[in-house]
Design a protein around this nucleic acid. Structure first.
Length: 282
DNA sequence: AATCTGGACAACCGCTGTAAG
DNA sequence: ACTTACAGCGGTTGTCCAGAT
């Protein structure tokens, strides 16, 4: 079996995207919406694999992307969410409108990791590490409780944060093609010249929001993950739904538990579970 | 001026989960 | 129940660029 890499199938382009390719993909997606990625390159006239197209759209072409530096608020939110969720970048990205998981992952790896390392080094000069296995169960329980509280706070603030965050103006950091917002602006200008409000754009063109050759593949797109945000602050259209996490993303058992005060009576079970299932850790 | 180095970002790879046949 | 194709995710690598030497 083995799933072959998309580059094995045929001679497909790899590497950085050219302006021409971007334009083709952007035009296609804005006209027909997001559907079956595997057929996008063919229909859009691209020598790329669908996976590559998807990534390019999600991480770069999507009109609702925020660019530029992460704000202090965002940075703090990432740190708390990472504390709560670990390396679940996609879930973290849900809480940061306009940021992609790739953005956050890169930012974490480049900036925050170092920052936190420095902070930890400053806080724990004797080299004590939280991964120490020599702590007692009592200590571990207290620490776990502290972690749980932190996670809980992070989730709560994350869920409230998304309701208050304003999308700042675009501030491009670099001006190479690949990261130039001017290109995007140009594309938007060129391809949506008659769109008075961004709200009206892209996915809202529901009459067009399907592949010409395969309309059936799109009939459910509006209720299967691709819809426009209804939130008032969402002046920017979300062609691909990063679902509103509070409304759409099902909370995991742990997340529900963390957020659900009523779960407190039974909260012992988690620590018990952890001890029972992982005695070797202690 | 040429080369080196590290930061920043973009893109790819390989894996998993899932839906459809 | 099994296979297959697909979307999505996280880790890793590649590329570009600016500053240092």
């Amino acid at each position: 079996m083995g799933r072959h890499s998309c580059t094995e199938k045929e001679k497909l382009r790899k590497g950085l995207w050219s302006p021409d390719e971007d334009e083709k993909l952007y035009t296609f997606i804005t006209r027909f919406g997001v559907g079956c990625w595997s057929s996008v390159p063919k229909l859009a006239g691209l020598q790329r694999c669908g996976k590559s197209c998807r990534l390019r759209w999600i991480n770069y072409l999507r009109p609702d992307l925020k660019r530029g530096m992460f704000s202090q608020e965002e940075e703090e939110l990432i740190i708390s969410l990472h504390e709560a969720l670990g390396n679940r970048w996609a879930q973290i990205a849900v809480q940061l409108p306009g940021r992609t998981d790739n953005d956050i992952k890169n930012y974490w790896n480049i900036h925050l990791k170092k920052k936190l390392k420095k902070l930890q080094a400053a806080e724990i000069p004797n080299g004590f590490s939280s991964s120490s296995h020599s702590i007692s169960r009592g200590q571990w329980e207290r620490r776990l409780q502290a972690d749980i509280n932190t996670a809980k706070q992070a989730l709560e603030s994350a869920l409230s944060y998304q309701n208050t965050i304003n999308v700042p103006e675009l501030k491009p950091e670099r001006f190479t093609y690949a990261s130039s917002t001017e290109n995007i602006a140009r594309l938007l200008k060129d391809w949506m010249p008659n769109t008075p409000k961004s709200e009206q754009s892209i996915s809202s063109s529901s009459t067009q929001n399907s592949f010409i050759n395969n309309p059936a593949s799109f009939e459910s797109s509006s209720n299967s993950g691709f819809s426009r945000s209804d939130s008032p602050e969402a002046g920017i259209v979300q062609v691909e739904s990063k679902p509103d996490p509070s409304a759409l993303a099902p909370l995991s058992m742990l997340e529900n538990w963390l957020l659900d005060e009523s779960a407190i009576p039974g909260k012992e079970y988690l620590t018990d579970f952890l001890f029972d299932e992982n005695p070797e850790l202690f």
